[in-house]
Design a binder for these strands. Structure first.
Lengths: 225, 225
DNA sequence: ACCCGGCTGCATCCTTCGATGTACGCCCCG
DNA sequence: CGGGGCGTACATCGAAGGATGCAGCCGGGT
C-alpha cells in the first residue's frame, strides 16, 4: 500500500532482531524482509514461545519480533518473560486484532503491536521505531487502545474526596484492608490490639457507607490507597 | 526525515479538514501542507478553541487538526466538546509531549496525537488514518501510553491463567466477591443456599492460595472478573 | 481552668465467615 | 454396567469479623 524510500542512515551498529514465529513460511518471509533492510540483522529464529525466551537469553537481541499464537508457550506469556528479564524490546505480531491479544500483549510489556497485514515497509519501520525505544501500535488497534485507556483512566467513581472524612489512623487501616490483611495482621502491622482495629474498621465502614471489609478493600484498591 | 511517495488513491469524496491553531505562521504552514495533499480539502481555520468548536459545528468537517495551546479555550477542552457532540474526529497536535497534554487529550476523546516535529508526509498520513476511523499516536508518545495503560489496567502479578483452575461456578462466585457481596447476597444472586456459596468460596480460596475473601476480592478486582 | 468534641484505644456480644464432612448427579473410561 | 473423578450442593462448628459502649488524651473555645 504505502511505499517508503529507504533511508540511508548512519548505523554504526545494526539492529539485532530475533524472529519468533511458528509457521515456517511466514517466518522465512519475515526474515527475508528484515534481511533486505539496511541496518537490520536477523540474529536468530524461534518456533515457539519457550525457544523465543531461551534464544533471547542467549542472543540478547535488540528487538524480538513475536507472534502471538505459538505452541508450548504463547506469545503473550513469552513477551512477559522477555520483558521481565529485560532481555529485549518486544514487537508483537498477530493476524487478528482481538482485544484480548492486544491488551494482554501490552500489559505484558510489549513495546509495539503490529498486524500481519502490514506491508514490508511498515514492518521495517516498526522494528526501527521499537529499537529507538519508542512505541508503535497498528492504527486499526490504536483507537480501541485509546478508548480503553480513557475508560480505565477516568475510573468509575474514583473520587479521593471520600478519604477526607477519614482520620489518619482510619486511612492506614483502609490501606491494610486493600492489601487483604485480617484484623489480627493489621493489629500486628500497626501495633495495636485487634479490638482497636475492629473499631477503626467499623468506623470507616460507617463513614464510607460500606457494609463489609470486602467492599472497603475493593474501594481501597480502586483509589490506590 | 522520512519521505513517503504520494499514493494516488481513488478518493471520490475528499477528506474535509478544519485547522485550529492560534499561531498564524504555523497555521498557514499546516494549511499549505494539507492543500498540497491529494484527497484532502481544508474547509476552514480557527484561531482559538471556541472558534474551533463553533466552526466544527457549522462546517461539519471529517477531521479537526487541533493545537493544544490556544487562547480562550484550550485544545483539550475544545476536543472534549467536539467529540462530545460527535462533530468530527480530532487529531491533536502539540509541540511538547508532556504527559498531561497527551493523557488529557486522549481522555478527552482525541483519535490521534501528533508532535509538531513530524514531517509533512507523516502529517498527511495521520489525517488520512484518523479519517479512516483508525487511531494514531506519535511513536515517541506511544510507549508512555502503553506503560501507563499497563499500570492502570493491572497491578502487580495479574496473570489470568490462575482462573483456569477454577470451575465456572467458582468464577461466578469470585466475580461476586470482587463486587463486595456477602455470602447471603451471592446466594440470592446465584440462587443457591448460603452454605453452598461458602463451599465455593472455600474452594476457590484454596485453589488460589488465598486466606480470606478480601484477598479474593482484591484479586478479582485486578483481573476484572 | 473548665468543658467539649474528636481521635484513639480496648472489651463485650452477636453475626458472618470459612473449614470440614458428606451426599447426589454427571461423564468418562475400563 | 460399575466404579472413580469432578462439579455442585448442603449442614455443622470453631474462628474471624463487626456493632456497640466506654475510657483516656489532646486540642480549641468561652
Amino acid at each position: 500500500m504505502t511505499q517508503r524510500q529507504p533511508t540511508p542512515e548512519t548505523t554504526p551498529a545494526p539492529i539485532r532482531v530475533l524472529v519468533a514465529e511458528d509457521q515456517a513460511a511466514v517466518r522465512s518471509g519475515l526474515v527475508l524482509i528484515l534481511r533486505s533492510a539496511p541496518g537490520i540483522e536477523v540474529v536468530g529464529e524461534a518456533v515457539d514461545g519457550e525457544q523465543a525466551v531461551a534464544r533471547a537469553r542467549a542472543l540478547r537481541p535488540d528487538v524480538v519480533l513475536m507472534d502471538v499464537q505459538m505452541p508450548r508457550l504463547d506469545g503473550v506469556s513469552a513477551t512477559r518473560q522477555v520483558v521481565a528479564e529485560g532481555l529485549a524490546d518486544v514487537l508483537v505480531l498477530t493476524t487478528f486484532d482481538l482485544d484480548e491479544y492486544v491488551f494482554g500483549a501490552l500489559r505484558a510489556g510489549a513495546a509495539g503491536f503490529l498486524l500481519k497485514d502490514s506491508d514490508a515497509a511498515r514492518l521495517v519501520e516498526a522494528v526501527r521505531t521499537v529499537a529507538r525505544g519508542e512505541g508503535l501500535i497498528a492504527p486499526a488497534v490504536t483507537r480501541r487502545l485509546i478508548k480503553e485507556f480513557a475508560r480505565s483512566g477516568t475510573a468509575t467513581t474514583a473520587d479521593p474526596s471520600v478519604l477526607a472524612v477519614l482520620t489518619p489512623r482510619e486511612r492506614e487501616v483502609l490501606g491494610c484492608l486493600g492489601r487483604g490483611m485480617s484484623n489480627a495482621e493489621i493489629a500486628t502491622h500497626l501495633t495495636m490490639a485487634e479490638a482497636t482495629v475492629k473499631t477503626h474498621v467499623s468506623r470507616l465502614l460507617g463513614k464510607l457507607e460500606l457494609r463489609s471489609r470486602v467492599q472497603a478493600a475493593v474501594l481501597a484498591q480502586e483509589l490506590g490507597v
